[in-house]
């Protein structure tokens, strides 16, 4: 495997290899000296066309723990804001000898396009409303750590599915790993033809919660209200928000996830976000570990077998 652009490109074995590698690397993160020499002399470029501090620093920490040289390229204040095209930016990075380019872009498919113009590996760190494969990997990793398995796990993904790259990647990855995903949203926030995706769909959160092992809440942007996706934040929250009463419908071991950043009081109440069921802080820590595994496998070779 050269690039990680879509979670759909990962077969079950590829995905498990990444998760297992991440387990091994997690032990490094628990040491007082957290650094491995694996990617010494390799250059990883963080190419961020959208502001996303949490994802950028997660990739930066991952690359640095593997001793790679990291170049952060943010579109703001760069040649991009002067109208430089993605292709020209790519050619510039290519000339600088980037071994991997981690790209976050507002346009769906930008990483696919980038892969035509650079020789190095392309890692999708979120493209428009398409995918965010490392988020899905870290979510799966977090679930497996908490619940001990992925096969047969019942996962509810709740919120703005239509615009969510996290949802797309999670459906693809979790279905490949044998989990059963149910997307929960008002009909306006579900894509056309979602019934053909490898998952279940429901408009009714309350009926889904009792049979869920994992509830993943997605951020819902308030601006969607202006485009008539839902009448008001209050109504959205009432029907699809996760609060104490709804959490009471979950079985005892069920966990609550959120990719962040959260709208506390909108899709999730503060009480739930901070409860012991919540994996939100672990997800951040696991993000670094999983991204280390991805960079390691794309650039450094394989632990215990080839990703191919």
């Amino acid at each position: 495997m050269k690039h990680l652009i879509s979670a759909g490109d990962l077969g079950r074995d590829d995905a498990l290899l990444i998760l297992d590698t991440a387990e091994e690397l997690a032990r490094v993160s628990e040491r007082s000296i957290k650094k491995l020499p694996t990617l010494r002399g390799r250059t990883v470029v963080n190419l961020f066309f959208e502001d996303s501090t949490r994802t950028r620093i997660s990739f930066e920490a991952a690359a640095k723990r593997l001793s790679a040289d990291v170049i952060n390229f943010s579109a703001k204040g760069s040649s991009v804001s002067k109208g430089e095209s993605l292709k020209d930016t790519a050619l510039t990075l290519e000339a600088m000898g980037a071994d991997a380019v981690v790209i976050r872009h507002g346009a769906s498919g930008a990483p696919h396009r980038l892969a035509n113009w650079v020789r190095g590996s392309v890692v999708n760190a979120g493209d428009g409303t398409h995918e965010h494969p490392t988020q899905a990997l870290l979510d799966a990793f977090s679930m497996r750590r908490r619940l001990g398995r992925l096969e047969g796990l019942k996962v509810a993904v709740v919120g703005d599915i239509l615009h969510s790259r996290v949802a797309r990647s999670n459906v693809l990855l979790l279905s490949a790993l044998g989990a059963e995903v149910t997307l929960v949203a008002p009909p306006t926030l579900l894509p056309v033809a979602v019934e053909n995706w490898p998952c279940q769909v429901s408009y009714d959160l309350d009926s889904v919660l009792p049979k869920s092992d994992v509830v993943m809440m997605l951020r819902v942007q308030l601006e969607r209200q202006n485009a008539a996706f839902f009448p008001s934040a209050r109504e959205y929250s009432r029907r699809y928000g996760l609060d104490r009463d709804r959490v009471a419908k979950l079985h005892d071991d069920a966990i609550v996830m959120h990719p962040g950043p959260m709208n506390r009081g909108m899709e999730i109440s503060a009480e739930v976000a901070d409860s012991p069921r919540s994996t939100i802080v672990e997800q951040v820590a696991n993000g670094v570990t999983v991204r280390m595994a991805v960079l390691y496998l794309l650039l450094g070779g394989a632990i215990g077998g080839d990703v191919q």
Partner: peptide
């Protein structure tokens, strides 16, 4: 075109 492909690709649909 708004349909199965646009939904998968995360591109805004033209119904």
């Amino acid at each position: 075109n708004e349909g199965e492909v646009s939904g998968r690709l995360g591109l805004a649909g033209w119904p």
